[in-house]
Amino acid sequence: MLKDRLKVERNGLPSWTRIARVVFYGVAFLLVITSRKPSAPPQAYPLRRILFGGHSAMFKSPGFEFGSLKPFLPQTGKVSFIMDIPYDPHDARMEPFCAAQAHLAPLVLTPFPSERVAIINCSNAAMAIRRSHETNYRIIQGPSGGKAIAVKQP
């Protein structure tokens, strides 16, 4: 009887179970309490004040530089997007194309020179002119800083 009493606690659990519980809770508690968040860079603090202070104009979304082209583009429909190199989905240099799409939606951008109107986004003006010739487009606006609007030549 006494042996059984020693084995089984008042709540019906064998004593080893109770020890295991304490170990589990202790380990989990220690893991939580000893965890550390990585320290944020110093510039995060003033940025947070600006963000939650309602000064949202400070934060520029990716592709905002294409905003200057908006007045020369149709509201909706499809437009080609020409870059220094032909489209390659695995090339990191394609990000400006994605950023332009995100900024200019609901306009649909296609990375192929198939549409009547095209946005030319090259590293410089000379490259923009060269790529427009290669893809059979005529520049009608720009090039300014390698960015231009062009139309397909007949």
Binding site: A40, L47, F52
Partner: peptide
């Protein structure tokens, strides 16, 4: 602590 760190982290990349 999580909310504090979250607000700091999103301030660096709000998009």
């Amino acid at each position: 602590r999580t909310l504090d760190f979250y607000s700091l982290t999103i301030s660096l990349n709000v998009f």
